[in-house]
Design a protein around this nucleic acid. Structure first.
Lengths: 133, 133
DNA sequence: TCATCTATATGCAAGCTGCATCTAGATGAT
DNA sequence: ATCATCTAGATGCAGCTTGCATATAGATGA
């Protein structure tokens, strides 16, 4: 069984997802210093991707796309072991883009909590059906 | 300019989005009582879709998909004005599905706040670059 | 030599969404 | 009567994101 890795957890039918959420995670990791895809993949665990690991193809594609848009730069680096790595660094533009993303996610959070408050509000009135049955 | 409606705001390039978020919103609205698509479209304003209104085609499609999966039922109803409406009601299965969604969204919220805490945590250390410059 | 690990990359298909467009009944103005 | 407009629902299509499978290839160790 070749290729990729991190294929264990079935990962099918997991709703829970913010569109393109991996992008800001990668940007934040790169804000901490340059890194390469394979390493970033491991460090994504911090963001709750442990049980539900990200797909490597997605990470590599996002990194390339970030580079196309000038938010990161890359160079090839010989590791002391294993094949060469493409090492990415955050650019100033990428730094700005990360902060844009954070503002956007805060807006998402606001929307989400609007939903929760609507939900709780509604369930207080109709506290018959649903969870407590 | 025919069809649909609610075409005003450009709505392009708004990142901020939770995949299939309209679905739980519609379920919650229907938990409050039966309704039809066009009316639901208006009531989505409560969930922060005011500046950024939902597309009617999406709503109609989600409603049909919910019906296919047995989460809502529909019947045709003659309104006192205008064309007939397809009126949807939440089924018991749909009620359960809504609560599933809420759990899922809470998980999304958890992930989101994990990101925020990583972000703040990181920015406290490197409080040079970024927002405050 | 061969399997395995590290590392990056591509092809493809499925799913979600937005935009444009279509149908069609109801309503109101001319 | 006719025509524009509003209400209501629906479809086609294209674009984007994702996950899965697979390809490539250097390094390492048995």
């Amino acid at each position: 069984m070749p290729g990729g890795r991190r294929r264990r957890g079935a990962h099918n039918r997991c709703e829970r997802r913010i569109t393109r959420f991996l992008e800001p995670c990668l940007l934040l990791l790169l804000h901490g210093g340059e890194s390469h895809g394979y390493e970033l993949l491991d460090n994504l665990g911090r963001f709750g991707f442990s049980e539900n690991p990200a797909d490597s193809s997605t990470i590599y594609r996002i990194l390339r796309s970030l580079e196309d848009r000038g938010f990161v730069t890359s160079r090839w680096a010989e590791g002391d072991s294993g094949p060469a790595r493409r090492v990415y660094s955050l650019s100033p533009a990428g730094d700005g883009y990360l902060h844009l993303w954070v503002g956007d996610l805060e807006e998402t959070d606001r929307i989400l909590h609007l939903f929760f408050s609507e939900y709780r509000n509604h369930m207080e009135l109709h506290h018959n059906s649903g969870k407590d049955t």
